[in-house]
């Protein structure tokens, strides 16, 4: 039986790269904020899609639940909760709205989805993977984003024990990746941005981390940025 995967935030960046890597060997349900028509062309052929805006956590989880029901899936082998948002700014100027959206999209929606997905994952003895960030230890330039990712780490540390023997739980913390999120976040990384990993590289690293079964896994920036720069240089 082909394995069944859910990847959230799969219309761009790391999520899309993961979906493309997995498309040949698994049935995919992908999510994003936009309507299907707007993203259909870039998604892997055959992948199912549901619009789930995580700034409304309960509605997003309900949308995913509805899509699983429509597909007739009663099990999930792997759920990758990858969707994320954030703003780069001086935390002393951050608005309440920005804090709330960041926490809702990155953390509250992951909590709602984890609750919704548990029976599906349990049916397949599946795996829940949370995508964090190396920023989760605290970051002055995007404090609420880093804080939300720390929340995911805390959730993963607890759930990994609570669900042991039922559903495997892992958190992976990727470093800076050239995903377009920095632009959306209002952050210009400057020349160092050229050293950010390609989404494909980060996706491959996350897959390796998933395969290792370990948690937490931090994907160090220097190692893969160096590998990427070398590859680019060799191709010149």
């Amino acid at each position: 039986m082909r394995s069944r995967l859910l990847i959230t935030g799969a219309t761009a960046g790391i999520g899309l790269a993961m979906a493309r890597r997995r498309a040949a060997g698994a049935d995919l349900l992908l999510t994003g904020r936009q309507e299907h028509a707007a993203v259909r062309d870039r998604l892997p052929p055959g992948a199912a899609y549901v619009a789930a805006d995580q700034s409304s956590p309960e509605a997003a989880a309900g949308a995913v639940r509805g899509a699983l029901d429509r597909l007739g899936w009663d099990r999930l082998d792997l759920a990758v909760l990858n969707a994320g948002a954030g703003h780069a700014l001086d935390p002393a100027t951050e608005s309440a709205q920005s804090i709330r959206v960041t926490l809702d999209v990155n953390l509250a929606a992951a909590i709602a989805l984890a609750q919704t997905l548990l029976p599906f994952l349990e049916n397949a003895s599946g795996k829940l993977v949370l995508v964090g960030s190396t920023a989760h230890r605290g970051a002055p330039g995007f404090a609420s984003y880093a804080a939300s990712k720390a929340g995911l780490d805390g959730l993963a540390r607890a759930l990994r024990e609570e669900w042991r023997g039922r559903v495997a739980v892992q958190i992976v913390h990727p470093g800076p990746t050239a995903t377009g999120m920095h632009e959306k976040a209002g952050h210009d990384p400057g020349p160092i941005g050229r050293m950010f990993a390609r989404p494909e590289t980060t996706a491959a690293r996350i897959e390796a981390a998933i395969a290792s079964g370990r948690s937490p896994v931090t994907i160090p920036f220097a190692r893969y940025a160096a590998a990427d720069s070398l590859t680019t240089w060799m191709k010149r």
């Binding site: 605290g138 880093a146 805390g154 959730l155």
Partner: peptide, 20 residues
């Protein structure tokens, strides 16, 4: 689990905003 998550949010935020 959710309590722990919420407390990690606050901890990482406090560390992040210390300098700014």
């Amino acid at each position: 689990a959710v309590y722990a998550a919420s407390k990690d949010v606050v901890a990482a935020y406090a560390k992040g905003v210390r300098k700014p």
